[in-house]
Nucleic acid binder design. Sequence first.
DNA 1: GTAGATTAGTTTAGGGGGTAAACTAGATGG
DNA 2: CCATCTAGTTTACCCCCTAAACTAATCTAC
Lengths: 148, 148
Amino acid sequence: MDKRLIEAVELFEDVMVHGTERVLKSVDSPIWQEYSREQLQVLKMISKSGAMPAGKIACLQGVHKSAVSSRIKKLEEKELIQIIKSSEDQRTKLIKLTKTGEEVVRQSDQAVYEYVEKLFSDQMTDDELDQFVSTFKKIREILKWEGV
Amino acid sequence: MDKRLIEAVELFEDVMVHGTERVLKSVDSPIWQEYSREQLQVLKMISKSGAMPAGKIACLQGVHKSAVSSRIKKLEEKELIQIIKSSEDQRTKLIKLTKTGEEVVRQSDQAVYEYVEKLFSDQMTDDELDQFVSTFKKIREILKWEGV
DNA sequence: GTAGATTAGTTTAGGGGGTAAACTAGATGG
DNA sequence: CCATCTAGTTTACCCCCTAAACTAATCTAC
C-alpha cells in the first residue's frame, strides 16, 4: 500500500467529494441562487453542443430520464429553453436555448470565472497554476467523461 | 484576461463541479448505495474528530441546523450513531458513533480507497502522482475549510 | 430571584434533487 | 396489421435543503 497513494486518496476525497459542495455554496452570483446546478448544467450543455433531445441530456447528466423530464419542464416555465418537436420523429423533443437562456449561460460562466479567478490569482504562483492545469487535465482525462 | 487562467477555470468547473458527481456515482460499494453522501460525511467527521453536538455538524457541513436534525434522526434509526445528552448543557446532544457506525466508516473509506487506487495507479505515472498531491494540497489550502 | 434574551435542537411547509414503474404515443419491422 | 421498441411523462416515494415557528434550557441583568 503506497503511502503517497493513501495521501492522494485522502486529498481526492477532501477536495473533490467534500470540497466541491462548499465551493458551490460560495459562488454567490444571483444566477446561482436562482437556478440549480443541474439546471445550469443543462443550459451549458446545450450552449456547447447545440439543441438536443431530452434523452441525450439524461444520458450526459447520468440521470434517469424522468429527472430530466421534470427539469426541462421547469426550464421551459422559466423561459430559458424552448421545446421543439422533431420533424423526423414525432416522439423526440429537441431542447433549444432561448435568448434568455443564452444570457443565463453567459452570466453563469462569468460568475464562475470571477470566483475562480479571485480564488486563484491571489494565492497561486505562476508555477502552481501551470501545475494545476496539467494535473486537472490529467484528471479529466482519467475520468474521461465527454465534455458536459 | 490571462489565457491560462481561462483554461484553469474551465478545468476547475469541469472536474470539480461536474466531474465530482459522476465520480460519486461510480463508486459502487453497497455502503454508498445504502447511505447518502451527507450521512457518510457526518459519520466520517465524528470518526475523525470525536463526538460532537448537532450544531457543530451543521456548521462543518455548512447546512442549516434543521437539515442536520433530520439527518441525525435517520442515522440514529439506522443505529449508526448514539445521541447522548450533554451533562453540562441539557440542550445540546452529543452525537457519537456506535460500533456499527465505526464499521460503516471503515467500509466507506475502503471503498473510496479502492476506487481511487484503481483509477490512479493504472493511469498515473509517479511524477503525475507527485504533482497531483502537491496541486491538491494547494487547492485544499486555498479553499481552506477545516478538515471535515 | 425572576423576566427577557439567547441558544440548541425540532417541526413543518415547500422546493430542489433522484429512482423505479406504469403509462402514452409515435416508430419499426416481421 | 399487430407486436415490439423507444421517447418522454406521470406518480409515488426517497434524500437534500431552507426559512420560520416552536420548545426547552441557559444566561444576563435588573
